[in-house]
Amino acid sequence: MIRALFTAATGMNAQSTVIDNTSNNLANVNTNGFKKGQADFQDLIYVTEKVPGSDVSQGFQVPTGLQIGSGVKVAGITKIFTQGGLVNTQNPNDVAIEGDGFIQVTLPSGEIRYTRDGALRLNAVGNLVTSDGFLITPQITIPQGAVTTSIGADGTVTITNPGATNASVNLGQITLVRFQNPAGLSAEGRNLFAETVSSGTPITATPGLNGTGLIRQGFLERSNVDVVTELVGLILAQRAYEFNTRAVRTADNMLSATSELIR
């Protein structure tokens, strides 16, 4: 009965983590390029009182054993990098990645980070930056006075100047990177991810090549959170938590009944 108390407590802790993760998913339902997290469970160590297949007499073995589990734990929260929906913003500086690629971002410290958020803006000198002002890599600078800015599906950035609207000027190309295991990236907030040993090294490529995907100008990728699915998961987690509290109460009642025997 004492074991049941601790076993049920592991279930309560695990479901509490699920609710925390679900809350984060729902909170970011309108975050550009957000990727939902999925909790993965593992059962804990078993107390083995009888090994399956152990001998009961010469030539005879028990068909099953006697193993009592110690509960559950959350083994990890996996980021699911499925494609989010694309929304037409009609903003020429907005770009969406239709594929598995990431935009490279350079922090003020010089470190490189990666993002799916294509809400790019111009800073005071015409550089394309994130909403936090971080430069994208390779750096693209839009000169003052440009009439139109065009970003092709392959990342090529061109402009037209006043008086020469029929002649476009090539300013460079936005490249994308992809990872062998994007779920191994470290989420750092601000829609940024950092490379880790688990993610593998970034593979840089022209958009449309090596599985990086294409760039869509004037669109933004929304989060891949399905609100209905998350709410159903929230209800299941709540019920599982309640079931574990009932197991605690049942074990406590049994202990109380046992203590009454000596009174």
Rank of each mutant, 00 (worst) to 15 (best):
Q180S: 11
R178A: 10
G208Q: 05
T196H: 14
S198A: 15
S186A: 15
N181M: 07
E188D: 15
S198M: 10
I203Q: 15
L209R: 11
V197E: 15
Q180N: 12
I203G: 11
N191E: 06
L209E: 13
N210A: 15
L185T: 03
R178N: 14
N210Y: 11
T204F: 09
N191G: 03
A194V: 12
F193K: 04
E188L: 14
R178F: 00
T204Y: 04
N191R: 05
A205T: 03
A187E: 07
G189Q: 15
P202W: 05
S198N: 14
F179L: 06
R216M: 02
R190E: 10
G208K: 01
S198E: 13
G211C: 06
E195T: 15
S198F: 10
G184A: 07
S199Y: 04
G211F: 09
G200H: 06
A205G: 10
S186H: 13
L209I: 11
P182T: 02
G213L: 00
G200E: 03
T206A: 06
I203T: 13
G213N: 07
T212M: 03
L185F: 02
G211W: 05
Q180T: 10
L185D: 03
I215T: 02
N210D: 14
S186F: 12
R216N: 11
R178W: 00
G184E: 07
F193S: 06
P202H: 09
V197P: 10
F193V: 06
E195L: 11
T204K: 12
G211N: 09
G184V: 02
N191Q: 13
L209K: 11
P207Q: 01
Q180M: 08
L214Y: 09
L209G: 08
S186W: 08
G208Y: 04
G200D: 01
P182G: 01
G208M: 07
G200R: 04
T201L: 13
N210H: 12
Q180Y: 06
E188S: 15
R178H: 09
P207K: 07
F193A: 07
L214S: 07
N181S: 09
T201Y: 09
L192Y: 01
G184N: 03
N210I: 07
S198K: 13
L209F: 13
Q180D: 11
G189E: 14
F193M: 10
T204R: 12
T206R: 02
T206C: 03
T212A: 04
T206L: 01
L185N: 01
E195H: 11
R178L: 01
A183L: 06
T212I: 04
S186D: 14
A183T: 09
I203D: 12
R216Y: 08
T201A: 14
R190P: 06
A205Q: 08
N191V: 04
V197R: 14
P202L: 08
P182M: 05
G184Q: 06
T206Q: 07
L209Y: 13
